[in-house]
Design a protein around this nucleic acid. Sequence first.
DNA 1: CATTGTGAAGCGTTTCACAGCC
DNA 2: GGCTGTGAAACGCTTCACAATG
Lengths: 250, 250
Amino acid sequence: MAPHRTPHVTRRRIPEATVARLPVYLQILSEQAEAGVASISSEGLAELAGVNAAKVRKDLSYLGSYGTRGVGYEVDYLVYQIRRELGLDHDWPVVIVGAGNLGQALAGYGGFGERGFPVGGIVDIDVAKVDTVVGGVRVRHIDELDAIVRSKDISIGIVATPPSTAQDAADRLVRSGVSSILNFAPVVLSAPAGVTVRKVDLAVELQILSYHEQRRGDQRRTEQLRAASGGVTPIAGNPSPAESRRDATA
Amino acid sequence: MAPHRTPHVTRRRIPEATVARLPVYLQILSEQAEAGVASISSEGLAELAGVNAAKVRKDLSYLGSYGTRGVGYEVDYLVYQIRRELGLDHDWPVVIVGAGNLGQALAGYGGFGERGFPVGGIVDIDVAKVDTVVGGVRVRHIDELDAIVRSKDISIGIVATPPSTAQDAADRLVRSGVSSILNFAPVVLSAPAGVTVRKVDLAVELQILSYHEQRRGDQRRTEQLRAASGGVTPIAGNPSPAESRRDATA
DNA sequence: CATTGTGAAGCGTTTCACAGCC
DNA sequence: GGCTGTGAAACGCTTCACAATG
């Protein structure tokens, strides 16, 4: 239970794939902790996360040896360690650029603040939107971006503008000193090295689903031609390795 | 320019990683087509997409041999082929479950319809929300889900409920006959085999950025200790292989 | 002769299988 | 005895490098 290694500075590098799963484990472990579960096995966590148990163990092993052989992992302690590793031991205020539909929804969506990412500001270039209030935050003009970022020491920016102005929004964020950007606009952003950019494109997600739907259609048509016998639909083609989970439904 | 292979049924399997990039190429190519560009090289497309040219060529090679050696790819024809491969040669109406903040934003966000995914319906369990209108679509009660899905022949559902009811929403969607689900709730959904589920978790994205921010902080602190000489910040640590792009900013 | 299409090498991730340990 | 931690094998994706070719 004692911390086994140098705290905070000098940290081993964690594979990106693992970094992307840690938040999911964290979510589940927090729920378990709330439900009064004190200890969990890699098998148990794997089941809840919809992944393989070996993967859970390998992922957790990058944090250090925090499990107990023959027993499992102490939930509270794992929560603490994952939070620390992800840098969630303090809040990260974010600034949203773009107060249109999406920007408003993001500001209004309470989930961010709860999860440690309070909306420190929202800006728009359109003066008509300035001074309206969304999600309890007053919209300010984009020219105030610098002031907001500096005064609140913000390092994460969210681009929620139309595609045509997204690059400009990103450039402004970078100039203001932001070093991580979450981009919701359907464009590929350029940013200097040292700035991390992640993209969430809702239409892309739907298009990936479309691909799978379409394949299913092709397949079914082929099966009909083969005139297979009745019964439960077989459905081959693994749904997808990473994001998709298949599992018996409750 | 002539189609070189059996159309529509019997299709080669495309790697998931490629499927995830095709929508990005499609987006770029559509813009190029609109701008009057007739032909593009793998190098050119790679630059615009922020990826390696060899990757572009390999990705496109899964669609067939649609390029011309020494010349490049015909933009219009590529657009056509990618759209076909992704199943975007017809619309896919979607149904949104949950008319809260996020559901409303998604329904109001015109981008879906434009990109071939019109909102065929939005439902909520809360009778207070029923009959309100969001994004031009009237909210209906969740008990009408079956009727909506069947009447509009919907195969893609979007879960935009609070986490506690997300699994129920998914179960209802599956029972109604939906076979692809895009999940915005921060929970791992279970679904029977044959149903594709993709998850978009905004907080997870921010937590991944948090990890990188935090690392940067550690590093900077370490550098300060080493008391390096002044000049342009070096910043090691590759930002991330998949989602993140680094590039000289305009 | 510029550019595609692709074997083959390289690399990161997943999974297996079992030694190590409580 | 049960479960973790981890080498090593397997796998899929990326990148290289170059032969094929319009």
